[in-house]
Amino acid sequence: MKENRVIWIFLILTQFAFSQIRGVVKDSISGEPIPYVNIWVENETIGTTSETNGSFSLDIKEEKLLVFSALGYESKKSSSKNEIILLKPKVFELNEVVVTFPKKTKELEIGEAHKVHISQLSGNKPWIYAKLFNYDEKYMETPFIKKIVFYSNSDIKGAKIKLRIFGINDSIPSEDLINEDIIVTVKEGMKKNTIDVSSYNIEFPKKGIVIGLEWLIIEENKYFFTYKDPKTKQKVSLENYAPSLVINHSPDEISFTYSKGRWYKHKRHSSNYKKEWNNKVDTPAINLILTN
């Protein structure tokens, strides 16, 4: 009887300590659910992504302030007690612009990304891994972005990841240049992914452009990563979300991480593992294919 009491007390305390909050994100005008919304606990690394039906869940210990961010919508902060979150669509001012269309007679691939068997796991946070492409005058002959290439290594079939395209301001990624979700489905294993973005007619900005890959913390991306603990020699299984992203090592500080509601620039680091990595920056393996 005493043992049973101990078990019940443990279960009650566990449920209290790790309560799960659930909710749905919807468009404030149409009432339609919004998929793939980036959701963070304010100023913390805890986060998730809304599913295709707008639903989400988070395991948190107490009431928190959540930050909701989605392309085409105004960001919103809301208490974790609220079950329905309404996001307001952004109103975009249309400036008078001269529209030019690519001829697509030339191509130039830039970025020096290549396939290596080193990759970055996502963990279980909807963070963004990004790479800066600085402008060069030689791009004047091929000023439009035709395709985006990135290398992935996925443990599951059909993992989804969100492609983001940013401007840059004061050495930090700024506004999205495309105000709609570009969801990419990658195949299992080590793959080269090529995404045609020519329909957006993106002209290479003189300040540079940042290409980001945002992990989606959704059920269809979930798998368990198993490794052997070097100390205990025991197998450990951790929840993770596909796909992993291939990493290159750059001599230039051109990579960023978006986490806890802000951008962090990656710095050069010392490496004792391989000399060729020493004083280099971990950078996602991303290339651009330009056209005229």
Rank of each mutant, 00 (worst) to 15 (best):
V25Q: 02
D27N: 11
S28K: 11
I29D: 03
S30Y: 08
E32S: 03
P33T: 03
I34M: 02
I34K: 04
P35N: 08
Y36S: 03
V37H: 06
V37D: 02
N38D: 08
I39V: 08
W40K: 02
V41H: 05
E42V: 10
N43L: 11
E44R: 13
T45Y: 13
T45Q: 13
G47F: 08
T48Q: 04
T48V: 07
T48S: 03
T49W: 05
T49M: 05
T49S: 15
S50V: 04
S50G: 11
E51G: 03
T52G: 02
T52A: 07
N53K: 13
L58D: 00
D59V: 04
D59N: 10
K61R: 07
K61H: 04
K61E: 01
E62K: 12
E62D: 06
E62C: 01
E63M: 04
L65F: 07
L66E: 00
L66T: 00
L66V: 00
V67H: 12
V67Y: 13
F68S: 00
F68N: 01
S69M: 11
S69F: 13
L71E: 03
G72M: 03
G72Q: 06
Y73F: 15
S75W: 02
K77N: 09
S78M: 12
S78K: 10
S80K: 09
K81Q: 06
K81H: 04
E83M: 07
I84S: 07
I84M: 10
K88S: 08
K88L: 09
K90C: 06
V91Q: 09
N95F: 12
N95E: 11
E96K: 14
E96R: 12
V98Q: 13
V98F: 15
V99M: 14
V99P: 07
V99D: 07
V99C: 08
F101C: 05
F101T: 08
K103T: 10
T105Y: 15
T105L: 14
K106I: 07
L108G: 05
L108S: 06
E109Q: 11
E109M: 10
I110W: 09
I110Y: 12
I110A: 06
I110S: 06
G111D: 04
G111T: 01
E112R: 07
K115Q: 12
H117R: 11
I118N: 12
I118Y: 15
I118C: 09
Q120M: 12
L121I: 09
Y129R: 14
A130G: 08
K131A: 01
K131C: 02
N134M: 10
N134D: 10
